[in-house]
Each structure stands twice: as structure tokens, then as C-alpha cells.
């Protein structure tokens, strides 16, 4: 089987995931919850992690891959330290979200889905955060920023980068 041929390193991260699977894998339908944990540990879901999950849960690799690629939340590419997620839902659209997206793409020099060369920012889009009253809205990691305009957006990105370099 294909899964057997993939080399999976034995390190702390895999051991943490294995522990989670051993504790929760017995419950029916654990795949999505396991992938949530795996992405938390690794930051993204490269093929070897998917193979590992398939092997441990005794599922076909194709099923794991199918689930990973179905849901917006799961990523198969490495990401930057911070994820900038701009909402393009209807409420944000009507308040000018596409203009904010343009500003973001220009400032970061990447397109949606891309990561800056220094792996600092990943640019992503979302359907709706349920913070529509603050439209247009973006999330940087777990933080919601609302009532954006181009200047404010740039300020947020630059402040975060500056704060990081100072530390």
C-alpha cells in the first residue's frame, strides 16, 4: 500500500498527534477532529501528515485527502507566521472589501493563497466571519479588524511587522 512507503519521521510532533489519535480515534467519525489537531500541531497538512492520519485511523489515503481538500479550513501548503484573512461576503463586498483586497495584494506583493517570501504573512479570503456589522472586516490570526479603509489596513499590517521586529 502507498501509505507504507511514505517515510514518517519519529519526532515530538508526530508523537503528540499519535497520542491525540489514540485518545480520540475510537469515537465514530474522528477524521475531521483529528485533522483539526494535526493542523494545529504542524501548521498545515503536508502529504506525509495525511498519510500518517490515514494509517493511524485505518482509512484509505484518498478519503483523508478528499476531506482535506473539501474544507476551506485545511491547508496543504506551509503558511506564514500570520494569516491575513479578508472577508469577501456580501456585507463586506457592499462596503468595499475588494478594494481592501487590492491594497493587501499590493502591500504584500502576493495573490490570494500566497505567502510572503519571508514567511511572515499568508493572504487568504473568507466567506463571512459573522462580524458583518463591522464591515469591511479582516482577521489577522484570531484578531478581528473592522471598519477597514486602505490606510487603516496598511497601518495594521505595518504595526504588526514592526512589533515583531522590535521583539
Amino acid at each position: 500500500m502507498e501509505t507504507a512507503q511514505v517515510h514518517i519521521p519519529d519526532n515530538a510532533e508526530y508523537r503528540e498527534l499519535k497520542k491525540f489519535i489514540d485518545e480520540n480515534g475510537k469515537e465514530p467519525g474522528p477524521l475531521i477532529q483529528v485533522l483539526h489537531r494535526a493542523q494545529k500541531i504542524f501548521g498545515y497538512l503536508p502529504p506525509e501528515v495525511q498519510h500518517f492520519v490515514a494509517r493511524e485511523l485505518r482509512l484509505p489515503f484518498g478519503q483523508v485527502y478528499g476531506v482535506v481538500t473539501f474544507y476551506n479550513f485545511f491547508r496543504t501548503e506551509p503558511i506564514g507566521d500570520h494569516i491575513v484573512n479578508i472577508c469577501l461576503g456580501t456585507a463586506c463586498h457592499v462596503k468595499g472589501a475588494s478594494e481592501i483586497l487590492k491594497v493587501l495584494e499590493q502591500e504584500l506583493g502576493i495573490r490570494v493563497g500566497g505567502t510572503t517570501q519571508d514567511r511572515f504573512y499568508t493572504l487568504s479570503t473568507a466567506r463571512c466571519f459573522g462580524a458583518c456589522g463591522l464591515a469591511p472586516v479582516m482577521m489577522v490570526d484570531d484578531e478581528v479588524y473592522g471598519r477597514l479603509n486602505p490606510q487603516k489596513t496598511l497601518q495594521i499590517l505595518r504595526d504588526l511587522r514592526n512589533a515583531q521586529t522590535v521583539n
Partner: peptide
């Protein structure tokens, strides 16, 4: 895990079962 379609009750059930 972020899929609008899971608002449909049968899709939601599939997702709860750990599937697409």
C-alpha cells in the same frame, strides 16, 4: 471546517461523520 454546504442538514450529518 468551513464549508457553506454544511448548512444543509444532510451535508452537516456527513461532515459530523468525518466525511466530505
Amino acid at each position: 471546517a468551513g464549508a457553506y454546504i454544511c448548512g444543509d442538514e444532510t451535508a452537516l450529518i456527513e461532515s459530523l461523520e468525518g466525511k466530505r
